[in-house]
């Protein structure tokens, strides 16, 4: 009992419990069947135990995703807490997989679990990394695309945390626009 108490009290609780999901593209299965919950955690120490146990994103095969979402939110547009929202999207050039991808993803995870966005952290749903041959993508998902103040604050802080230059522009896209797009490009609702 003392050991259990020590284990609990020595760890640093996070504001939220988070769920890590893994997606592996198997064309013989449905999209949902390819999505698996890996585990949930709610302390800083348990986050690191998980992070050091799983593959770096850059080592995953094309077609795989990791998603980190607040407990209770599924990593898909259809979830009630996502469907009115959108994402700040970071698109990477192919060569950045070897130079920046893992650093950007870890920074994204730390922004989420550390509640970096202050009161606007309430607006955060999660983050997704897509490993793709044509170029990897990282995105932070927020719950309400119409919440201009929250969305733009999150975008500015996120860009700064990634260390992106002022010359780089990142865009926020509403999921509703992504879901109904006709071409390959979704219009940006906001940019920073």
């Amino acid at each position: 009992r003392e050991a259990l108490a020590a284990e609990i009290w020595d760890k640093h609780p996070l504001q939220n419990r988070w769920a890590l999901w893994f997606f592996k593209n198997d064309k013989s299965k449905t999209w949902q069947a390819n999505l698996r919950l890996v585990t949930k955690f709610s302390t800083a120490e348990d986050f690191w135990a998980l992070y050091s146990h799983i593959q770096l994103a850059s080592k995953l095969t094309s077609g795989c995703d990791y998603s980190l979402f607040k407990d209770g939110i599924e990593p898909m547009w259809e979830d009630n807490r996502n469907k009115r929202g959108g994402r700040w999207l970071i698109t990477l050039a192919k060569q950045q997989r070897h130079t920046e991808l893992d650093r950007f993803w870890l920074e994204t995870l730390l922004c989420l679990i550390g509640e970096t966005f202050g009161p606007y952290s309430e607006d955060i749903c999660g983050a997704v990394i897509n490993i793709r041959a044509k170029g990897d993508k990282i995105a932070i998902w927020t719950r309400e695309a119409e919440n201009r103040d929250g969305v733009t604050h999150i975008g500015r802080v996120y860009k700064e945390r990634l260390g992106l230059s002022h010359k780089v522009v990142i865009g926020y896209q509403a999921h509703a626009d992504t879901a109904t797009k006709s071409g390959s490009l979704t219009k940006n609702k906001f940019v920073v």
Binding site: A44, W48, I113, G114, E115, T116, G118
Partner: peptide, 18 residues
């Protein structure tokens, strides 16, 4: 209520603690 906020430095230190 209060929000538990951890900066980058603190979280990185948690990584290295035994």
């Amino acid at each position: 209520g209060t929000r538990i906020i951890y900066d980058r430095k603190f979280l990185m230190e948690c990584r290295n603690s035994p």
